[in-house]
Design a protein around this nucleic acid. Structure first.
Length: 1092
RNA sequence: GGGCGGGUAGCUCAGUGGGAGAGCAUCGGCCUUACAAGCCGGGGGUCGCAGGUUCAAGCCCUGUCCCGCCUACCA
């Protein structure tokens, strides 16, 4: 055998990974081009975009490996596959990181370097970061089409963002409005609900006393309100009381009573107590509340302490009589519910903003101006206490919303923002305008819900459809503006105008400012600032803009479809200003499935590379060919943020959903069940795993863990940078600070976050990946064995009926494996798919087939050796193909060696193979061969295996060395005798048996150990003395008797016989028969010993 | 408060009504001519708890206790 084919004794992943990846790249096997293949022969995955900010961790690796597995599988199935990779600009996250570095490294803020300066720095950071991420993905083996790599802020995507914004703006789906938003005072931007997380903290509940102005007789001097944020009282503009406190009390009491009636006894106690409290409260406070209600109706006022401002007492149902004192302070500008109260009492009460964007208090806060919000809280409390206006302070656990990016508590904050109207709109929404798929929908969200309801989008596992629908059904508007510098700038220029000469203004705007950009590439909206009513300026005029609105609160909004420096200059000169905000990152992400393919016009998409998105070589353009895609692969937390929005935008822009399947995989947790993340110090870098165990080992374990049900715990092990000792991070002691650990072995300190400059950082790995390297090594050695046999193999024509039993068995097993792997993959169950391939390779091929053919192979002149070699080569070939989606590198390496050794594919005379690929990545996916199916054979072979194992068991129990050959007798029912004799070589070989006597009348040979397997009784000669064997047999009889009793009990049950299905009864009868046979065999053996 | 998921061997997890499984760990035996990262064999489980439905329950129903995630509210 030539040296070329000799494999090293163990698998060394690092020697093969890089060369193979480069060979793939060079052969352009990842690159997707439209061709003649039909829609059902295409397979498209859009990669969920990693953020430019971060290096990838194991969670990303899971996501990427799942996609690569699917893509490789479909590529082998002959599909035209596109895996579109890319990176997200991740607005807030990226700007936060770069600003933080700016501060740490240069001591500067974004205001010091200015908008352009900051953006330039972020671009530089993005280049570095993107490079690192792509390298990580390539080392994992990702077979994405790197030539089509996109970035959400590149020219192609930017054009799509402008186009989508323009269309929605014109359709009135993008609107602006002054609303309460989640404000991040650290980053000074609004954020959406999705970017807020809640944390329970120990806080206080302050009860404040507000003096009543001029209390009459019978009226209270003070009333009490309570709050967890006392500083907001500076912005209070009213105190509310329920308009019908008596009714409200009664309703609440009814409410509790009715749940009391339905409640299980366990809950009754608490409910009864609640009811008692409620009634007590009603007695105590109802009279007072009625008085207050009347005062409110009479238009009375309260003096707001500290601000010395009179605020009205109002009636509003928001004030629940049974809560607190029954009165509630109203701070419209800083509380969502209070804001709602304000909208019901406009004109009656004020709305006062007391915050600056940075979280300090503004001029409206009087003496407290310029104080930070938390400083102000302390001072407000102290001052109220001094004035005797602090009635009580309670300790209380409160949930506080935090900004996901800056980790600071958010504030409800009133400001102008842009929104997308997600709910139903009056005339409905035109989806897929000017496409063949144009249709109407009541609203954007409804369109996306319908897609899931009628099965155009399917979720795997299915239950995630509910998550998707539940979230969408809220139909909440989506706030899309962010007060950041990094992102897609909102392409709207505005100017405050007066209604008087509006027609004139618009006329000038059209003719002199917008010129030929109007109306196709620009549009104008007239907006009322107060009401938010917005009217599109159409071809005719703007007459129907309402009459009864005040002059000074109008805006003229101009949206430009494309960047146009001249027009923008003209706009600025005529007093327009561009909106300073940028779009939420998810706006551009939502367009990803079509923007990356060149929407709205692939032919003119500026890809900045040689790969065109337009029609090439007579084939259709990429958008036409690859949209809609096939499958979206992601974690469940992304369903709302991204999946739903992609569906919405896909429907709106293209008229079609962007993918048919959504595969939701489990997330990776650490050993304690906590989510992995770099900042927690439990994040494993895939590259660390690849360097230690190899890429295939990592992929193997990730696929194996993905069982489709739940999140995956991955215990994290730290490797001491000093002595290389491994330790469970959950059990290591901390070092000098809680950020460092002390090695259990060498006692040196190490760090896991990489933030301590003078402490060396430990690598984080997980020993779970050992499984993967073991598996790869096994596969490697299987091939190593095969290769040693294949040098002299001749492609001779085979005849199925001339094959040995093991040959036919392994081919039937292969069929079974092919079906299981394929089914597992199509059901999105990687673990069962991989398991089936592994069981075939390891369990069937190595443990049985290879061992069985060894004797044939050593007699290399025999024709049967050549048969075995050909089947071995074929099985290895098929195994490599079946495993390729999971472990891509090792299978590719071995496949190429196999091709060199044995260029002929298939099995001459039995299986023809037409695929000519030099790579396994391009080889055809295995198909079951009908002729090889043989269930009877599989069953018979399973019996042979059981018999073999039975003999091995006896050997092991009696301590017979594996090298010591034994003589065996088998007593068998007559019908089994023939094939047991025919196939005796299986047992002879695998149980190291010299002589095998099979006889239906066999008597126990003296000194033989015996064991019953199924209907057979096995005797191993010359092992035991009779007395020991008698004892053993008696024990076994007891066991069998128990089983017989159990079966009889079941079969004696008339209900079982009449109600259970026939096959279940039959099964039970067979079982009884088997045990009875065993019983007979054992008692006979026992008698024979006792008689001898 | 609401929703979803989970609780099965020491660990990580499979198991969609018909005598509980895998990998790792453990114990015993093997350097058997591909692989000691291997081979052969073994031990180990009131399937969270309590009821119920059923001829039959890890699986279905009800209740209950833990754990995780999502979501809402909290004057």
């Amino acid at each position: 055998m030539s040296e070329n084919y000799k494999l090293s004794k163990t698998f060394e992943p690092h020697k093969i990974e890089q060369p193979i990846y480069e060979a793939w790249l060079q052969a352009k096997v990842f690159h997707a081009k439209p061709d003649q293949r039909a829609p059902h022969e295409r397979y498209v995955i859009m990669m969920p975009l990693p953020n430019v900010t971060g290096a990838l961790h194991m969670g990303h690796a899971m996501d990427n490996v799942m996609q690569d597995m699917l893509i490789r599988w479909h590529r082998m199935m002959g599909n035209n596959t596109l895996w579109m990779p890319g990176i997200d600009h991740a607005g807030i996250a990226t700007q936060a990181v770069v600003e933080k570095r700016l501060k740490e490294l240069e001591g500067l803020t974004r205001h010091d370097v200015g908008r352009d300066g900051l953006i330039e720095r972020i671009w530089r950071w993005k280049e570095q970061s993107q490079d690192r991420i792509v390298k990580q993905q390539q080392r994992m083996g990702c077979s994405a089409d790197w030539d089509r790599h996109r970035f959400t802020m590149d020219k192609v995507c930017t054009r799509a963002v402008r186009r989508a914004f323009f269309a929605m703006f014109r359709d009135g789906l993008i609107i602006r409005g002054k609303r309460l938003v989640n404000w991040d005072p650290y980053l000074r931007t609004s954020i959406s609900d999705d970017e807020v997380y809640h944390e329970t903290v120990q806080g206080h509940f302050w009860h404040l006393r507000y003096p009543v102005i001029n209390p009459a007789r019978g009226e209270p001097e003070f009333l009490v309100v309570a709050t967890t944020r006392p500083e907001t009282m500076l912005g209070d503009t009213a105190v509310a009381v329920h308009p019908q406190p008596d009714e409200a009390f009664r309703a609440e009491i009814e409410n509790v009573k009715s749940s009391l009636n339905k409640a299980p006894s366990k809950d009754r106690h608490t409910l009864e107590a609640a009811l008692a409290d409620l009634e007590k409260k009603q007695n105590e406070s109802l009279q007072g509340l009625l008085v207050l209600r009347d005062m409110a109706k009479a238009g009375r006022s309260i003096r707001l302490p500290l601000m010395d401002r009179a605020i009205p007492l109002i009636c509003d149902e928001w004030a629940k009589p049974h809560l607190g004192s029954g009165c509630v302070k109203i701070t419209p500008a800083h509380d969502t519910n209070d804001y709602a109260v304000w909208t019901r009492h406009k004109g009656e009460i004020d709305i006062i903003n007391i915050l600056n964007p940075d979280g300090t208090l503004n001029d409206n806060a009087g003496l407290y101006r310029d104080l930070d919000r938390f400083e102000a809280r302390k001072k407000v409390v102290a001052d109220l206490k001094k004035q005797g206006l602090l009635a009580e302070v309670e300790d209380r656990k409160i949930e506080i919303g935090h900004s996901d990016r800056s980790k600071t508590p958010i504030e409800p904050y009133l400001c102008d923002q842009w929104y997308i109207r997600m709910g139903d709109v009056d005339q409905g929404v035109v989806m897929g305008r000017d496409t063949p798929n144009q249709h109407n929908s009541p609203g954007l969200v409804q369109a996306a819900m319908d897609a899931a309801l009628d099965g155009r989008v399917r979720f795997f596992p299915e239950r995630f459809k509910k998550t998707y629908l539940d979230w969408l059904s809220e139909k909440r508007d989506w706030p899309i503006s962010r007060q950041l510098w990094w992102g897609h700038r909102i392409p709207v220029w505005s100017k405050v105008v007066s209604l008087k000469n509006l027609d004139e203004l618009v006329e000038t705007l059209r003719k002199e400012t917008l010129k030929d950009l109007w109306p196709s590439k620009s549009c104008i909206r007239v907006v009322n600032k107060e009401s938010g009513i917005s009217v599109l300026v159409g071809e005719q005029n703007i007459e129907r803009v309402s009459k009864d609105l005040q002059d000074d609160s109008w805006l003229l909004d101009v949206c430009l479809l494309e960047q146009d420096a001249d027009c923008e200059k003209r706009l600025i000169e005529s007093g327009f200003g561009q909106d300073p905000d940028v779009l939420d990152t998810w706006f551009s992400s939502a367009l990803w499935p079509h923007s990356t393919l060149g929407w709205p016009d692939p032919g003119t998409a500026d890809t900045e590379s040689e790969v065109s998105l337009g029609a090439v070589g007579g084939f259709r353009d990429c958008l036409d060919y690859y949209y809609p895609g096939s499958c979206l692969v992601t974690g469940r937390d992304i369903i709302t943020l991204w999946v739903a929005r992609m569906v919405i935008f896909g429907l709106y822009n293209m008229g079609k959903v962007p993918f048919s399947d959504v595969f939701i995989h489990g997330n990776i947790l650490d050993g304690k069940g906590e989510r992995m993340s770099k900042s927690k110090g439990n994040g494993i870098d895939p590259v660390d795993i690849i360097e230690k165990y190899g890429s295939d080992a990592m992929r193997y374990v990730l696929c194996d863990m993905q069982t489709g049900n739940q999140d995956i715990k991955l215990p994290v092990t730290a490797v001491c940078p000093n002595c290389d000792a491994h330790m469970d991070l959950g059990k290591v002691e901390h070092g000098k600070s809680i950020f460092t650990y002390r090695c259990a072995q060498c006692t040196e300190e190490f760090d896991v976050l990489g933030t301590m400059p003078d402490v060396p950082a430990a690598k984080l790995i997980s020993e779970r990946f050992v499984d993967g390297s073991k598996f790869c090594n096994k596969l490697w050695n299987t091939a190593r064995f095969a290769f040693a046999q294949l040098e002299n193999v001749k492609p001779e024509t085979l005849r199925y009926d001339e094959l040995a039993i093991e040959d036919r068995w392994i081919l039937a097993s292969l069929n079974r494996a092919i079906r299981s792997v394929t089914t597992g993959l199509s059901h999105y169950n990687p673990s069962t798919a991989l398991g089936a391939a592994r069981d075939f390779m390891w369990g069937d091929l190595c443990d049985w087939y290879l061992e069985l053919i060894k004797p044939r192979l050593t007699e290399s002149n025999e024709p049967s050796a050549n048969v075995a070699r050909q089947i071995l080569a074929y099985c290895l070939d098929m195994t490599l193909r079946l495993l390729h989606p999971f472990v891509c590198y090792i299978t590719e390496h071995l496949f190429q060696k196999l091709c060199e050794l044995r260029p002929e594919k298939g099995l001459p005379g039995l299986v023809r193979e037409s695929s000519e690929s030099a790579f396994v990545i391009g080889a055809a996916w295995p198909m079951p061969v009908g002729d090889f199916d043989d269930d009877k054979l599989l069953k018979m072979f399973a019996d042979l295996q059981a018999t073999t194992t039975g003999i091995r068991d006896i050997r092991s129990t009696y301590g017979i060395s594996p090298s010591q050959a034994v003589r065996i007798g088998i007593k068998t029912p007559p019908e089994e005798q023939e094939h047991l004799s025919t196939y005796a070589h299986v047992i002879l070989r695998l149980a190291n048996v010299t002589q095998l006597d099979v006889d239906s009348q066999l008597k126990r040979p003296p000194g033989a150990a015996s064991k019953v397997v199924g209907k057979l009784q096995i005797f191993v000669h010359d092992l035991v003395d009779d007395e020991e064997e008698i004892q053993r047999l008696k024990k076994e009889i007891k066991k069998v008797e128990k089983e017989i009793e159990l079966c009889n009990k079941k079969l004696g049950n008339q209900k079982f016989i009449s109600k259970a299905p026939a096959e279940v009864v039959k099964e039970q009868e067979d079982r009884l028969l088997k045990y009875e046979t065993q019983y007979m065999a054992i008692t006979t053996a026992l008698q024979e010993i006792e008689m001898s």
